[in-house]
Amino acid sequence: MTTPRLALRGLRKAFGRREVLAGVDLDVRAGESLVVIGASGTGKSVLLKCILGLLRPDSGSIRLDGEELVGLSGPRLEAARARIGMLFQGSALFDSLPVWRNVTFALTSGRSVRGREMKARAIAELARVGLAPEVADLRPAALSGGMQKRVALARAICARPDILFFDEPTTGLDPVMAGQIDRLIREQVSALGATALSITHDLESVRRVADRVAMLAGGRIVWEGPVGVLDCSGHPLVERFVRGRAGDSPVGAEAPA
């Protein structure tokens, strides 16, 4: 057995008395695309934020290529973060900066330096996600939701991370746009040879993006398997999700987010 790229063990996180993650165990292997599914409010975003170090888990372990991330700080945390790209649910573009500064943000850590070079780079990156060079000079607020997602994807991959996280990349997009974003994600993951961990409650999206699927419910991973066996999982919650009712039934959740 080789070490998984990312290994979560016994991950717990509570807000007040509400335990959102109740001992999550999950492996993501190098080069695979794993999709975590689950109803709204089950803690999928909390799971990602714990991995990214934006939230501190109450207990448990998160290992990146064997290195413990929980409690890591300073240059070693920075080094780990340099390997990570993240696409946020709402794109989270910096609306005070033009698109091209957004795209190249990771390369300059936000400093306004090397303008000409960065702009050229941004235009090349935008082309990768199917956006025209003119977009580079616009402000994020001037873009449609789908274009914002593309820019956010370009920003996430610009520094060539080898692990990518996607939080509900297709939520709020029309089906055509959602399909395009999924295809772009798939393309970029293969092009970079990256490992991907995505979150979604969109079944179509799961089928397009996933190699493997894991289901989060009640604060734990209750099922995981290859995307090919999703339709014959034999697990009641997964079956319910596949039949298209998971999004609106509060499975394992006391209160929606």
Partner: peptide, 19 residues
């Protein structure tokens, strides 16, 4: 401005972009 950045996860995005 900063509260909006919090709400829209721009503050989280800064951190993941190592800023």
């Amino acid at each position: 401005e900063i509260a909006t950045m919090r709400v829209t996860e721009q503050l989280d995005a800064l951190v993941t972009l190592r800023t």
